[in-house]
Design a protein around this nucleic acid. Structure first.
Lengths: 344, 344
DNA sequence: GCATCTTGCTAATCCGATTTAGCCGAGCGG
DNA sequence: CCGCTCGGCTAAATCGGATTAGCAAGATGC
């Protein structure tokens, strides 16, 4: 990329020792005996010359590039993506590793080609990530390789998965509701999305609903109703408007995604109902809007940062990567949209 | 990363030729004479064996890693970041390059260390990127290297910059306002941010305001007032509420950032004013919320995707990187918040 | 006093490609 | 029939480190 770099041979010459000695002195290995005097002279020469090892050259011999590849479907497009990448980057950085970030856009051919590009560069491992939690079948190029699945599951594939603990999050929402005193008039907006328009529904929807209903039941409460709709702002607005127009007055809304909450806020606002005074709202995801909404939205956060971190840590932990599912907790972000039931 | 890869030596053996011949046949070079028969045998052997070149090994000799490093302050934290990265990634991919993404979090030491990590891996070039357009002084390690500045400017530093054309965007906003018939009661919310709480104000604020005032003046109109405030939702809400509480009824609001618009919407909503029926709103940035707001926000889009793309294209264009400022247009996203002046 | 260990270091290989230098035989001009 | 060119291919060097094998000198054991 510019003038010739200082090589280890230069350092050895400057220190008056052989390249072998320089190599051992610099790598600080003790299994080969180097006198303190020599070691010091090598280190000093390296410092004086501003020597930096050529990681590419080293990799050729050691087979380790200190590099991890990340392939995703369209992770950079989602508002959460940054956190995943940042978490992964931080963990990598702590171990002197760097990350190749790639995105296939859901195209299988592109995916294979990207995996090849990564493998050709001898990455130490590959993180296969998806935007929403779902089942996947990784490209065949990844079989037998060091791989971690991030935010996705692949039953037949021998690799660990790192996913949000959606089931426990559903329970957490129920506990928060119960703790605030809600036992009646609780509606779920968004539902399971059994046949979802948005792919995230498949796993998240089912588990969130399951955990929610389980704990409500245990607490002697139950859902008054479930409205199945797409997980977006428009549907949230439409469905909640319809609910209110039908004369139904919920005490609490469990929105299955923040985007739905945003729509619910709009509908509630137009109907002159206040949050949480008239209606409490609790949600899932913790997207950016959650904190700027008025009142700020109480929601269970998708732990994207920790997801990214854990994926990298599993890789750098060393040893074989066991096929296991690692569930990361979704913390409750207590803000202002959940209060005591109206008229209680 | 697993069982031994097929090397070029294997291919050569399989094809019954020397590694030299295999190399020339595979790289398709014509300056060395290889018979069609040999070439075909090599290609066939490579196909049969599933040969893939080891880019790391190749780099050692060729000095080109087909790899670009990106260092940013905290680009993954912003909602725009994904677009920058995606644009850069796409352009890189089209030329068989891969991207190292790193983030220093504004820490100079971390920045240097990351640049070293990239340089140690022999990246072909480095993109130095910032979250908001501003002046920077890149770390000294980058001097004399192949560098492109993304979304920032460094006057004394010999490298091209790629930035949004904020001045022209300001003009665009004015033209849109004039075209809709607005000449009076136009208020700017957010202002220049001469002493900004958010760093993006420094350059963007000044240029947006300058372009805006210039074209309004040429069109025989002018700003009724400018309210300086932070570029966030809360300040937007507060300042517009104050304005309305003071009995002022603007015809059009030019919000200097979408976040401010969001706050303005809330204030307008609470005052029972409709957008764009009573008050038109035009804004800058095109964040995610812009399109889900009701009515959808008319705004001038920060061209992050093209910014990322252009940065990589400048690098891959080959030849020396000239110190020049490349201004990328900010397209007007015409949506529903701008209409004819109330009572006109 | 001789065999045996250490200690401290170096020469030579290797990793997987690219690239330079040069060899061999056929064809051709004179 | 000799010298040359040229087409087709290969041996060897190279890139910048890591690693293996081994060597020389001094210390130690008996």
């Amino acid at each position: 990329m510019s003038e010739r770099r200082v090589t280890m041979a230069d350092v050895a010459r400057e220190a008056g020792v052989s390249p072998t000695t320089a190599s051992f002195a610099l790598s600080g290995r003790t299994d080969m005996r180097i006198s303190d005097a020599s070691r010091e002279r090598v280190l000093e020469a390296a410092r004086r010359l501003g020597y930096r090892p050529n990681v590419t050259a080293r990799s050729l011999r050691t087979k380790s590039t200190q590099t991890i590849g990340l392939v995703s479907d369209r992770i950079t497009t989602t508002p959460f993506a940054g956190d995943v990448i940042r978490g992964a980057m931080e963990a990598a950085r702590e171990h002197d590793h760097l990350l190749f970030i790639t995105e296939a856009g859901g195209d299988r051919a592109a995916e294979s080609s990207l995996v090849h590009a990564l493998l050709d560069r001898q990455v130490d491992a590959v993180i296969y990530a998806t935007m929403f939690t779902r089942y996947v079948t990784p490209p065949k190029e990844l079989f037998g390789r060091r791989v971690v699945l991030l935010n996705c599951l692949a039953p037949g594939f021998d690799a660990p998965s790192v996913v949000p603990d959606e089931l426990e999050a559903g329970r957490g929402a129920a506990r928060a509701l119960l703790a605030a005193g809600h036992t009646e008039g609780i509606w779920a907006i968004g539902g399971h999305q059994a046949v979802p328009a948005t792919p995230e529904g498949i796993i998240a929807g089912n588990e969130r609903m399951r955990g929610l209903e389980e704990v409500l039941r245990e607490g002697g409460a139950h859902l008054h109703g479930v409205i199945e709709c797409d997980w977006d702002t428009l549907d949230g607005y439409r469905e909640v408007s319809a609910l209110l127009a039908a004369g139904i007055r919920p005490r609490a809304l469990v929105c299955l995604a923040d985007r739905v909450s945003f729509g619910a806020y709009q509908a509630l606002g137009e109907a002159g109902l206040s949050v949480p005074g008239d209606v409490s709202v609790i949600s899932f995801d913790d997207q950016d809007i959650a904190s700027v909404l008025r009142p700020a939205l109480t929601t269970l956060k998708l732990p994207h940062h920790r997801l990214g971190r854990l994926a990298v840590e599993l890789i750098l932990r060393g040893g074989p990567l066991e096929a296991a599912v690692h569930r990361v907790p979704m913390p409750l972000m207590e803000r202002a949209s959940l209060g005591a039931p109206a008229g209680a």
